[in-house]
Amino acid sequence: MESIQAKQGLVGPNDPIQRTQLPYVTGTSVVALKYKDGILMAADMGGSYGSTIRYKSVERIKPIGKHSLLGASGEISDFQELLRNLDELILYDNMWDDGNSLGPKELHSYLTRVMYNRRNKFDPLWNSLVLGGVKNGQKYLGMVSMIGVNFEDSHVATGFGNHLARPILRDEWHENLSYEDGVKLLEKCMRVLLYRDRSAVNKLQIAKITEEGTTISQPYALKTFWGFTAFQNPTAGAEGSW
């Protein structure tokens, strides 16, 4: 009797606890790279509700403290929760008032712990995070996945960017990229993503962090050209597939 009643609701009193969720509103790729003076990071501003691109001005790159930038793809609300959490962390860090502050390396490690801890509770924060920053002349760029996998690299990308942007970065990135060349390279990546990733929108922000501080660009659009023959006849190279 009880079990029949339980089945009628979404969650019955005797059902096992289900924490694993599905993402609701998600952001797509983040691409970031080291350049001569610091870190550049790019992300578009789309927020997808399932496969519907429902929001068009979601900021997915935020400064954390004085020395770091955080970019996120995946569940937007989880990202916002994380930002609240980090804000508090930075606040308490400042309250020591001793001149010490958390750098990008420390924050990356902290995020790794948070993500891994949540996944061990079967309640992960549904994000891929990119953390970049500069402190004491040291550039830092790393990634954390939603299950806590983490690494550092000279250039990183989340989601589709992993497949579409990183091959470009591997070919064209080098240690001494100027700011202009860095931005050009990121825009090249973002353009490819815009063409091939259905969740991407043509409104993006590029953020820069150097020893001097953080600047996040106003949203802007990339110039596009949709007249490529491959675009006009997309099935030409894959006959019979769809």
């Binding site: 020591w96 001793d98 010490n100 958390l102 750098g103 390396k105 420390e106 490690s109 902290y110 712990r113």
Partner: peptide, 15 residues
């Protein structure tokens, strides 16, 4: 150092 993978500032420990 588990959380932040960096050494605890001495001044903080003393406080």
């Amino acid at each position: 150092s588990y959380t932040y993978e960096s050494p605890l500032p001495v001044g903080r420990l003393v406080v």
